[in-house]
Simulated scan of single mutants.
Amino acid sequence: MTVRDLAILPVKAADAAALAAAVRKNTKALHTRVRELPAWRKENEIVMKKSHFAAVLLFLAAAVGALTAGYLYIRRREKELDEYESLLFSEDFDEDEAPEADEPAEEPAAE
């Protein structure tokens, strides 16, 4: 930085401080005017903050998601159990015709 830039810094800082003070003053005045509006000053009015509203929406979305996940799991599990039951009690497999593993296969006669 040059000497000229260093000399201008206090002036720029003062301008920034004056601007900040003006913004604060105008914002405070606007806030006061808005609070004095008759629509904002109703008796026994329940007001919900935006953050509370967002929290309620997120809670409801989480509850719906959990219920959906549970439903999908139960539906998939029911399909698996129905498939297992159909395999278990199917008539395609007959125990009388099934080869038994304990009996050795017949060997050709030795010459």
Rank of each mutant, 00 (worst) to 15 (best):
V3E: 14
D5A: 11
D5P: 01
L6R: 08
A7G: 01
I8F: 10
L9D: 06
P10C: 00
V11W: 04
V11F: 03
K12I: 14
K12M: 10
A13S: 06
A13N: 11
A14R: 12
A14T: 14
A17C: 05
A18W: 01
L19V: 08
L19I: 08
A20G: 06
A22N: 03
V23Y: 01
R24V: 11
K25G: 13
N26E: 03
N26C: 04
T27F: 01
L30N: 12
T32P: 00
T32L: 08
R33Y: 09
R33H: 03
V34D: 04
V34Q: 10
R35F: 06
E36Y: 00
E36M: 11
L37A: 15
A39I: 15
A39W: 09
W40H: 12
R41I: 07
R41G: 03
K42R: 05
K42V: 07
E43A: 10
E43Y: 04
E43C: 05
E43T: 15
N44C: 03
E45T: 07
I46L: 12
I46N: 03
I46G: 00
V47Q: 10
V47A: 02
M48K: 07
M48S: 09
M48W: 07
K49V: 07
K49N: 11
K49M: 06
K50H: 07
S51F: 01
S51C: 00
S51Y: 05
S51D: 07
H52F: 11
H52Q: 12
H52P: 01
H52T: 15
H52E: 13
F53W: 09
A55L: 00
A55E: 10
V56K: 09
V56G: 02
L58S: 14
L58I: 10
F59M: 12
F59T: 15
F59D: 06
F59L: 13
L60D: 01
A61I: 08
A61L: 06
A61M: 04
A62H: 03
A63H: 06
A63P: 02
V64G: 15
V64Y: 14
G65Q: 04
A66M: 07
A66D: 07
A66T: 12
L67Q: 11
T68C: 14
G70N: 07
G70S: 14
G70R: 11
Y71E: 00
Y71V: 13
Y71G: 11
I74Y: 02
I74S: 05
R75D: 14
R76M: 11
L81W: 04
L81P: 00
E83C: 06
E83S: 10
E83M: 09
E83Q: 04
Y84A: 15
E85W: 09
S86D: 09
S86Q: 10
S86K: 08
L87N: 02
L88T: 14
L88R: 01
F89S: 10
S90C: 00
S90R: 03
E91Q: 11
D94Y: 02
D94A: 10
D96A: 13
E97N: 09
E97A: 14
E97Y: 15
A98N: 05
A98S: 12
A98G: 02
A98W: 14
P99K: 11
P99R: 04
P99H: 03
E100P: 02
E100N: 12
D102R: 01
D102C: 05
D102H: 06
E103S: 05
E103I: 15
E103C: 00
P104I: 04
P104T: 04
A105N: 08
E107M: 10
P108W: 03
P108H: 06
P108F: 05
A110L: 15
A110S: 09
E111K: 08
